[in-house]
Design a binder for these strands. Structure first.
Lengths: 206, 206
DNA sequence: TTATACTTGACCGATTTGGTCAACGGAGGA
DNA sequence: TCCTCCGTTGACCAAATCGGTCAAGTATAA
């Protein structure tokens, strides 16, 4: 790819990136026209081909960008260093919301890319997916202090339940289009409080 | 449309319908080729055009089929006549799973269709969407017996939370492709039991 | 054999595709 | 004022794809 792309103002870069995520997340790789991406980004097709020499290059750049950004934000928010489960979930959610705010269609793009069957790119996608695996939610519970929860709680079930509800919420928001950071953080804080009241060991009830 | 379509064996009908849902749910209306649908259904493009005179007709038939089927199953399972919230959720989930098993891509199709911007069809979709509205989850809680829950529970929050987790679960399953009815029902029953233990008024603790 | 219904491959004109390229236009230096 | 870059574009191309048609092929039943 042409390094001059990075010399562009960040804002312009993001406009192009988001146009890419939009179009690629709405259609299969093959049926996603470069012309549509260019048009949505407000530049000519020629210029888009000036920055990215062909469609595959643009697509894989967008894919790499997902991985990099996700890892960057998750570590920046230090959500995997937490011992308090609720604090960890709160930080993770905040990171996801911030990404979603900047790149509203990145989530759909990732999923679509993962299941893309086109021979030209699917292998490249599958290869680089290994780096994502490290973030899988399986081993998260191990670093968590479990003494904070009320007795008799199935901790694994509880976490799975909270995780699913969070994902469901994010999905609902994305589907509805308007990504309102403040509303989402408020909603999620409410959910967290509801869970805390439910799951945390009751010290002194008033 | 050609009524002879309905004379086909149900199995063949569903093959064609599912091919339609797959292709239309993966691409925008305009970028979804009839040839691909025909190919995936194992019939020639000509024959597809024999049953549905043009693309729009097929698309709107698929759309109508969603509404009809959803209403049919939800009433068949009597999930809106329940007073017990958990029983209602269980029946609703069972209906959804059964639909999902028969038409794995119907869910994605509905969402995509709702947000379809193509002038040729978007108005027709928006019009017929009213019939769906009756099923909206807003007024569900009104018919539920709320005396069954433990004290201090925010019932609205609780329901929203369970709803989101269910949706999150369904979405996760659909994304993973293989729709395994038995596993899904088992998983959901487990979730329900977890919730019951959590939310139901504790009569006599052993 | 014949009549009927089902199914198809070949075909059409129109549109769209990824990608190229000569040229335009503005900024800055001499 | 002229010249030289360099970001940017519209016009262009060959190839592929699109929705839709139609005459002909095939199976079936009488």
């Amino acid at each position: 790819m042409n390094e001059k792309f990075f010399a562009l103002p960040k804002e312009k870069q993001n406009t192009i990136i988001n146009a890419g995520y939009r179009v690629f997340s709405q259609n299969s790789y093959k049926k996603s026209p470069m012309s549509e991406i260019a048009g949505e980004a407000g530049i000519s097709k020629s210029l888009l081909f000036h920055y990215f020499h062909n469609k595959k290059e643009l697509y894989l750049f967008l894919w790499d960008n997902c991985a990099k950004l996700t890892i960057k934000y998750l570590t920046e928010y230090k959500c995997y260093e937490q011992k308090d489960l609720f604090e960890m979930m709160y930080r993770g959610m905040k990171a996801k919301i911030r990404i979603m705010n900047q790149y509203p269609n990145m989530g759909s793009f990732v999923i679509k890319a993962f299941y893309e069957r086109d021979a030209e790119i699917s292998s490249a996608i599958q290869d680089s997916f290994k780096s994502y695996k490290a973030l899988k939610a399986d081993k998260i519970l191990e670093s968590i202090d479990t003494t904070q929860f009320a007795e008799g709680i199935d901790v694994k079930m509880m976490y799975r339940e909270m995780y699913l509800a969070s994902e469901g919420y994010l999905w609902e928001m994305q589907r509805n289009g308007a990504v309102d950071v403040e509303k989402m953080e408020k909603d999620f804080t409410e959910m967290l409080n509801f869970w805390k009241k439910l799951y945390l060991r009751k010290e002194v009830e008033k």
